[in-house]
Write a protein that binds this DNA or RNA. Structure first.
Length: 535
DNA sequence: GTAGGGTTAG
């Protein structure tokens, strides 16, 4: 693609003449090839100054915008938007659809929405582009916007296609909206899209991320064709649910069938080892990936292995490994290492790692300050903790509040610690009292060391009782039938007391409870958790 | 001759 474009480009420069067709052919080669930046420089430089006889038309701009999307180049993208308006091409649907995608790729979901809202006519690509834009946006609540847009699309009678399904399913997966996910599954079946590779893969991912790993597996087993992507999705799904043995045996099955794993497959495999504390296996897969599969270890693989070593308590080895690795460790690696040090009670190491690598030069995100504060709390160094929080405050930073969500009959209910805003708050707190009573009977003592405040023991116990996932599980118990599965989504990670509480609740109420935290799933059943208390 | 989609260590 590049070579043909380069040849044609050279020819245009030589003759100093072109026509829209040739110029667009060059652009297409560059924009879709391996060097999209060439497309932009061709437009902004060559076309204007070296080659006469061509003005960009409505075929030119989508190609250029495509290049901007791939480069995440918002500046040139905006400039092109200006040119489009100037040339009166802003009513062309191809151009508008490309603009939506350009803004989406460059992180401007609001700009993308503005373009979309101004369109007088929208086809399936317009809808898919804006749904995809919302689904991919990092801002809070964007998944819900994507799902809402999907409903509007159906109301307008536009038939979704494969790409639409994939984007909607991503929004379901990210937000954990299982009911909509199931609905999209039904629509896919009706439109015979369920068996298409991309859609089937997205469905598997959706079920896994919505807590229903069995349904994910069932669908995966029924797929008529599977590529490395599909295998990787299933392997990482199993890994995130703590089913490491299943994940690894699936990886071996994949190899037996002759499917070549890629670097992402290996990330999933290492993450399976990490989640189960399988140090020896993790080391072996890490070594083998280069030798047996020719896959170069990258940052995420090093990160996985270091996390695995650290969490298993091999702190010195993990830190040494981080210092000696051939790629510069990033903040994530130092943070996981500091967290592992805190878990294993090595306060000195934890504190040093945060100060050396996360808070140096006056930089630092709120997460690093919160981590340092937690390290001091665990070590009961209240003065130091207060200083950290003050430093945070003076920089205008705040700890993001912990929240838990639960879906009941298609409606999402969200709770924060001590929340009294829910319409059934009274019943929820009554249920919570009942749970506490039964926990006491079971001999459970609140793990007050988890409350990281310098307050008396009674106040700590009070704080613990009202953590958001406890409110969510109480609500789940009163608003679902006996024996029904309870699925809770947390924005952060659980504390140990909540983890213990879930175990006991699963046993005494005879419920399966699934908690998705920031990074993985915990499945509580009959008093135990699938993570084996390793998290 | 132009536009949209599936995984990713915390």
């Amino acid at each position: 693609m590049n070579q043909a474009a380069q040849q044609l480009h050279a020819q245009l420069i030589k003759t100093r003449r072109s026509d829209p067709h040739s110029a667009n052919a060059v652009l297409k080669g560059y924009a879709k090839g391996s060097r999209p930046q060439e497309a932009l420089s061709f437009f902004f430089f060559s076309l204007r100054q070296q080659v006469a006889g061509t003005e960009p038309d409505s075929f030119t701009f989508p190609l250029l915008l495509h290049a901007c999307s791939r480069l995440r180049a918002k500046g040139p993208g905006k400039q092109l938007h200006g040119n489009i308006v100037k040339q009166g091409l802003s009513m062309d649907m191809f151009v508008q659809n490309s603009l939506i995608h350009m803004y989406a790729s460059c992180g401007g979901i609001q700009c993308a929405l503005k373009v979309f809202e101004r369109m007088s006519k929208r086809d399936v690509v317009s809808w898919t582009s804006i749904i995809g834009a919302a689904a991919a946006a990092a801002e809070e609540g964007c998944s819900a916007v994507a799902l809402h847009l999907f409903d509007e699309m159906l109301e307008e009678g536009v038939a979704p296609n494969e790409a639409t399904m994939v984007s909607v399913l991503r929004a379901c997966a990210d937000s954990g909206t299982l009911s909509t996910g199931r609905r999209v599954h039904r629509i896919s079946k009706k439109l015979k899209l369920e068996v298409k590779l991309h859609v089937a893969t997205a469905l598997v991912d959706m079920y896994a991320k919505c807590g229903s790993i069995e349904e994910a597996r069932e669908l995966f087993d029924q797929m008529p064709e599977r590529d490395a992507f599909a295998w990787t999705v299933m392997i990482s799904g199993l890994a995130s649910h703590g089913r490491s043995r299943d994940a690894l045996s699936l990886f071996h099955r994949m190899r037996e069938l002759g499917v070549t794993p890629d670097e992402r497959t290996m990330t999933a495999v290492l993450s399976a080892c990490r989640n189960a504390g399988m140090v020896a296996d993790g080391r072996r897969y890490f070594e083998e990936m280069k030798k047996s599969h020719g896959i170069q270890q990258r940052l995420q693989h090093y990160g996985c292995l270091i996390d695995l070593l650290g969490r298993a308590g091999n702190l010195e080895e993990a830190e040494e490994f981080a210092r000696r690795m051939p790629i510069d460790p990033d903040r994530v690696i130092w943070r996981t290492l500091a967290w592992a040090s805190k878990i294993h009670g090595d306060t000195g190491r934890a504190e040093r790692l945060v100060r050396e690598h996360l808070l140096g030069l006056g930089f630092g995100d709120s997460g690093s300050f919160v981590l340092l504060g937690n390290i001091y709390s665990t070590a009961r160094k209240w003065d130091q903790k207060a200083r950290v929080w003050a430093a945070m405050g003076s920089r205008g930073m705040k700890k993001p509040p912990a929240s838990s969500r639960i879906e009941i009959n298609g409606e999402i209910h969200e709770f924060e610690a001590g929340d009294g805003r829910h319409r059934e708050a009274e019943k929820i707190y009554l249920k919570l009292e009942e749970i506490e009573e039964r926990l006491r009977e079971e001999g459970h003592r609140p793990r007050i060391s988890e409350v990281l405040l310098d307050v008396d023991e009674e106040e700590k116990a009070f704080q613990l009782r009202h953590h958001s996932e406890k409110l969510a599980v109480a609500f789940g118990l009163i608003s679902s039938g006996p024996g029904e599965k309870i699925v809770i989504f947390k924005n952060l990670r659980s504390c140990e007391d909540c983890h213990e509480t879930m175990k006991i609740v699963s046993r005494i109420y005879g419920r399966e409870i699934i908690v998705r935290d920031r990074v993985r799933f915990h499945r509580f059943s009959r008093g135990t958790c699938s993570c084996g208390d390793f998290w």
